[in-house]
Design a protein around this nucleic acid. Sequence first.
DNA 1: CACGGATCCTGATGGC
DNA 2: TGCCATCAGGATCCGT
Length: 273
Amino acid sequence: MPELPEVEVTRLSLAPHLMGAQIQHLRLGKPLRWPLGTAPERLCDLQVLALRRRGKYLLLDLNQGLLLVHLGMSGSLRFFATTPPPAGAHDHADLQTDLGTLRLHDPRRFGALVYAPQGERDPIAQKLLGHLGLEPLETAFTPRALHAGLQQKKSAIKQVLLAGAVVVGVGNIYASEALFLAKIRPTTRANRISLARATRLHAAIQSVLRQALAAGGSTLRDFRNAQGESGYFIQHAAVYGRAGLPCRDCGTPIRQLLQGQRSSFFCPHCQHV
DNA sequence: CACGGATCCTGATGGC
DNA sequence: TGCCATCAGGATCCGT
């Protein structure tokens, strides 16, 4: 469900509610991808100082340590200013604060809630964040930097984008969309992409992510922001989920293929090598 | 050590 | 209607 835009939309809608909140209780449901890494009681009385994002991770800076939240494939966060409704079968964490309750809903449980007592330099934070590539909407992400990163990778560009070691936050939907905009085939080896084409891809990634952000995140299935509202970007997808349908630019049927167990979509006419 | 594949889990969907 | 196979927005881990 969540790629960078969805996580960022979540962060933006959550920040005003969580800023300065004091944790009173943490209730955990079924296990998530990783254990919390501490006893839930240890978080009591800690205060939320800031809400940041790194790739698809949400980072809650506490006055002692850092709480990392990942939404996996099916996760979403909601904030309840008053008493939340009873937890459902897939509500696996309730972070109760003096300002309200942050609830993590995640049917597939690929998501995670992890406490790093020593903040970003904590080993667990290093393990999860240390290898991440550039933030696509920050100034360090330039056409040259993208090109340089791609030069190091021999795999297909689609898989390099998904891996997050060069640039973070681009998931399965936006990878296909960005490659279509840049007119690059998903199967092209990353190190065979010229500076000119990397420059197009750079612009395409930013354009696709910014559009999705402005639209409030995609809504392929059930993405909701912290207020429970859904976005609508996916209805404008150029290629994602459109196998067999005519390309919006040239009419050629969109093709679907499998790369690393993930579907890719592309127009065989508009996207060369 | 870089790469590709298997893997975690539940729900929705479509074919028979 | 029921049963089964397939697929879904992620990312780590493990074997080669």
